[in-house]
Design a protein around this nucleic acid. Structure first.
Lengths: 338, 338
DNA sequence: AATGAGATTGGAAACGTTACCAGTATCAAT
DNA sequence: ATTGATACTGGTAACGTTTCCAATCTCATT
């Protein structure tokens, strides 16, 4: 097994010092082309792979990025994770994926991830921006909030973000709903919505209703306890029982998928009786019957951007960056004008 | 920052030797209760966390399990990954998730994962059992194939597996289809099916058709190039164009979701004109309209079992283990007897 | 020939653990 | 008191790198 060959062996075999091999390994500038080539040949010949644990020990950190996801099974995140993983891979970074449940604390999870595994940076997906996030700022690990609403009052200089304008996008689509003749609209938000995307999307929804002279009573909003189809199903059931509406806006496609089934089970037709509009733009939405009208976030671009920003920060090119993407309404059979 | 406190500091502060602290850290038996307690208190007081990189360096491996997934975005896998992640977490193992595309080589990926990151074990999901897998056996890293068909001719003593009997399950459900009066059935398999689950499921399908006196010509089988809804959509379109059938069996729910849409777009009603049966049992299947009849694999149990077996092997309790689960037919509106 | 700047190179001390080996207590049995 | 077994404990050499510092080489310039 040509396995346990180490840098010392390579040095001896190449007739140079360990330092030189190390320099070759790390692309240090001050090593002559000739020796660099020679060393590389020996490395190749013995298929030597540097021991990462030793490297990490010296460097005091791991060539890894922690990715903390709240609600990992949501296809929207899965899609992004796929991109993030391959981008990180291309940069030879390891992805340390950590999933937290809806009722777990993602900050605590991130904190122990940082302490135990010492990644160079962090990406958050899902969850909300809580106050305790300053705790993270204190660790000197840069992080980017992808897809997570940042409230106005927060100090933006200690982290980066990749988001859409949740309020504005919800407002825009609700306006479209109103313009379509729907004067009675309902919505499904997310229960724990202190500072989550849900809050802004629901606010955008409500404000647009008000601005367009539609009914916007509290009865028209139900809150799901989870970002799952089941939660969407249950929330829609409650709405159907307590109010009348011709259009239902869901702050997540997954909730919409559940809601559609609940509406169907209650005997209504979509979109003839009730239109449904989702948010996110997951692939499943285009295949279900009726296909789901939704607000599509540019998930792949957002994923790329998250990694790009994090790398820029790690390379000292910037201390932080906040990027806001634009979403696009995606037509679907589940929505029609009255 | 109470960060850069190391084992030496703890030893000094507790008035013991470094060795003793190390023993406490690793729950070694021969350290007196009294000192153990004292050391633990100091560790607690200074919130000391052992440096994993140093530990890994000494131990020559990482307390991690590599998980190589082909087709990561399939909800079936996502669901399992969720369980695997939390099981590993409970054992304080890091999950090194690695996704490979349908046309990438998962063995190569695993090989470099092992060489570079030195995980203690590996779990494979998706993909097929290729010959080159012996290469893996040569590295001394135990691995379990979850959800991956093992062909008869292979030496089973070098690895573990958690599967269902793909052939038998497909046979069983096809029998049900035939008994339901469907004499003309079609199926969607997977294109690169040299040794994949697809092959066995399709074989089971075909054999059951034959045994029940149904038509089983090659024209009734289409092969998707991918495990995606889109691939299912396209394959179903081809089938609709080339043959007549009253029931469609898909070797994966994701393919079925796409197929359902294709059938709908072609103007047929499900299940009145065509019944559809999937395989896997993803959550989405119960919410779509019509809900998807499917062969449900016990995904969570299989995920738990994969981790359990791997840990057992790592602890030397066994050299390998092969576990076969039973799937269950899951009724759905997409299937009806003629 | 001597000088010195600049380019390469080598030596060796870390980084923070673990685990082997050797030692010291303790204490019951002689 | 001595012995020997048993229960702990400490010293220290690894593990495989990186990086600082010092040393050497090269070569144009004086």
């Amino acid at each position: 097994m040509s396995d346990n060959v180490n840098i010392i062996d390579i040095a001896r075999l190449a007739g140079v010092s360990v330092s030189t091999v190390s320099r070759v390994l790390n692309n240090h500038p001050d090593v002559s082309e000739k020796t660099k080539l020679a060393v590389k040949q020996v490395i190749e010949a013995y298929s030597y792979i540097p021991n990462n644990n030793a490297r990490n020990l010296k460097r005091e950190s791991m060539r890894a990025i922690g990715v903390v996801v709240k609600g990992f099974t949501n296809p929207f995140f899965t899609q992004m994770l796929n991109v993030i993983q391959s981008d990180l891979d291309a940069q030879r970074y390891t992805m340390l994926l950590h999933q937290v449940d809806q009722n777990q604390d993602e900050i605590e999870a991130a904190l122990s991830l940082v302490k135990e595994k010492k990644p160079r940076g962090l990406i958050f997906m899902g969850g909300s921006f809580k106050q305790r996030r300053d705790k993270l700022a204190m660790l000197r690990t840069p992080f980017v909030m992808a897809t997570i609403t940042i409230t106005r009052d927060v100090d933006r200089s200690t982290f980066s973000s990749v988001t859409i304008d949740d309020y504005a996008e919800a407002y825009k689509v609700t306006e479209k709903i109103c313009k379509g003749g729907h004067t009675q609209a309902a919505a499904i938000g997310y229960f724990h919505d202190d500072k989550s995307i849900s809050r802004l999307r629901i606010e955008g929804f409500r404000e647009a209703l008000r601005a367009n002279g539609c009914d916007y009573s509290d009865k028209n909003i139900a809150y799901a306890g989870d970002f799952t189809m089941q939660a969407g199903y249950l929330a829609a059931q409650r709405l159907l029982a307590q109010t009348k509406f011709t259009c239902l806006f869901c702050i997540s496609d997954l909730l919409a998928l559940g809601a559609i089934r609940a509406i169907y089970d209650a005997g209504y037709k979509i979109p003839q009786d009730i239109s449904v509009v989702g948010f996110d733009g997951i692939a499943e939405g285009s295949y279900i019957i009726p296909s789901l009208a939704t607000v599509k976030q540019p998930d792949k671009e957002m994923a790329h951007e998250s990694v790009r920003i994090l790398m820029a920060v790690l390379q000292g090119k910037a201390s932080h960056e906040h990027k806001i993407f634009t979403a696009n309404f995606h037509e679907g059979e589940s929505f029609r004008n009255l």
